[in-house]
Simulated assay, not measured.
Amino acid sequence: MFSTLRWSAGRVLSALLTLLGVSVIIFVAVRLMPGGFEDIILGPLATDAERAALVAAYGLDQPILVQYFAWIGQVLQGDLGMSLVTQTPVATELALRIPVTAMLTVMAILATLVIGIPLGVWTGVRSTGRSGGKVARVVSSLGISVPEFVLGSIVIYVFSRFALGLQVGGFSQVGESFGATLQALLLPALVLTVFCVAATARTTRDAVMNVLVEPHIGAAVARGETPWYIIRHHVLRNAGIPILTLLGTITAYLLGGAVIIETLFNIPGLGSFMVTGLDRRDFAVVQAAVLFAAAVFVTVSLVLDLLTSAIDPRVAVTGKQKQ
C-alpha cells in the first residue's frame, strides 16, 4: 500500500513538473518566432517610435523572466490574461471554443472504442487461422499511414463535389443547434477517427495475441471454458494495460490533429484558435491554448497511469508495465 501511494505521489509530482516545463518552453518559443507582435499589428510602414510605443504599452519590453513570472502568477490565480489583438479575456474565448474541440474529441474517442477494440480482438483471435484477419491488418496499416491533412482534403473534395448526405462546413456554435453542430462535426471526427481506430486495433490485436499464448489460457481451454468466456474473463483484462497506455497517445494525437482538422474544416475550436493566435503573434492566446492542451494530456496520462496501477498493482511496485 505504501509503495502504491508513493508511486502515485511521484506520478502527480511528475505531472506538475511537466506542466511547469511546458509553460517555460511555450513562453520562450512564441517569443523566438520571426516577426513580433508589433510587426503584425503595425505593418512594415510603421516607424521605430510607433513600434517601441506599442511594445512598451503591452509590457513586451520588460526582461523575459519578469514577463514569465508575471504571466505564470496570473495563471496560478486563474487569470489567463488578455488577448493582445481583441483585448478580450483569453478565458472567455477559450470557454467558447473548448466545447467544440471537446465534442470533436469525444466523438472520435467513442468511435475508436466502439470500432477499434472489437476489431483488434477479432483480428487477434483469428490470427492463428488461415485468413488471420489479413483484411483488417491491411486496413489498419493504411489507417496509420495516411496523414490526417491528406485524408481531410480528400474528404472535403469528395463531399463538396458530390451530394453524399453530409455537408462540409455550415458549423453551428455549440448550444445554438445541437443537431447542426453534430452534423458539422461528423466528417472531421471521422477523419480523426481513422488513425485512432487503426492504432487501437493494431495495439489490441498484439495485446490479445500475447495473452493467448499465456499458460492460464491453455488451462482455461483444458477446463472446457467457452471461447467467449475466455475472452471476457481472461483475455480482455490482461490485454487492457497496453490499450489504456495507447489512450494517452491517442489523446495527444487528437489534440494535435484538431489543429489541422479544425483549420481544414473551418471549425472555430481550440486548434483553429491557436493557429489564429500564432498568425497574429498573440502571445497570451497561444500560451493559454497550449498550456490548456498540455494540462488535458497530462491529466489524462495521469489518470490512465493510476488506472493501470489499479488493474495491475505490479506497475506501482516495479514501475514497469507488463507487456
Rank of each mutant, 00 (worst) to 15 (best):
F2P: 09
S8T: 15
A9R: 02
L13T: 12
A15C: 06
L16K: 08
L17E: 01
T18R: 02
S23A: 14
V24A: 05
I26S: 07
I26Y: 09
I26Q: 05
F27N: 00
F27E: 01
V30H: 10
L32D: 02
M33S: 01
P34Q: 08
I40R: 14
P44Q: 07
L45M: 10
D48N: 05
A49L: 12
E50L: 04
A52S: 12
A52G: 09
Q62S: 07
V66Y: 02
W71D: 00
Q74W: 04
Q74E: 11
D79V: 00
S83I: 15
L84H: 12
L94G: 03
L94Y: 09
L94Q: 07
R97D: 07
V100S: 00
V106P: 08
V106C: 08
M107R: 02
M107W: 07
A111R: 02
V125W: 15
V125C: 06
S127C: 04
T128M: 07
T128E: 10
R130L: 14
R130H: 12
G133Q: 04
G133R: 00
R137G: 06
I144K: 09
S145V: 10
V146A: 05
G152W: 09
Y157A: 12
V158I: 14
V158R: 09
F159S: 06
A163M: 10
L166D: 07
G169R: 01
V174E: 00
V174L: 03
V174N: 06
F178C: 02
G179Y: 08
A184I: 12
L186H: 10
L186T: 15
P188D: 09
L190H: 04
C196L: 10
T200H: 07
R202F: 11
V211C: 07
V211I: 06
G218R: 14
V221L: 11
A222W: 03
R223C: 04
G224C: 06
I230G: 02
I230E: 01
H234I: 03
H234M: 06
V235W: 07
G240D: 08
P242L: 06
P242H: 12
L244K: 11
T245S: 14
T249R: 07
I250N: 07
A258Q: 11
V259W: 12
I261G: 06
I267A: 13
P268A: 13
G269A: 13
S272L: 15
V275H: 10
T276F: 05
R280Y: 11
V290E: 02
A295T: 15
A295G: 15
A295N: 11
V300F: 05
L302I: 14
V303Q: 05
V303E: 03
L304S: 05
L304E: 06
T308W: 02
A310D: 02
V317N: 05
T318K: 03
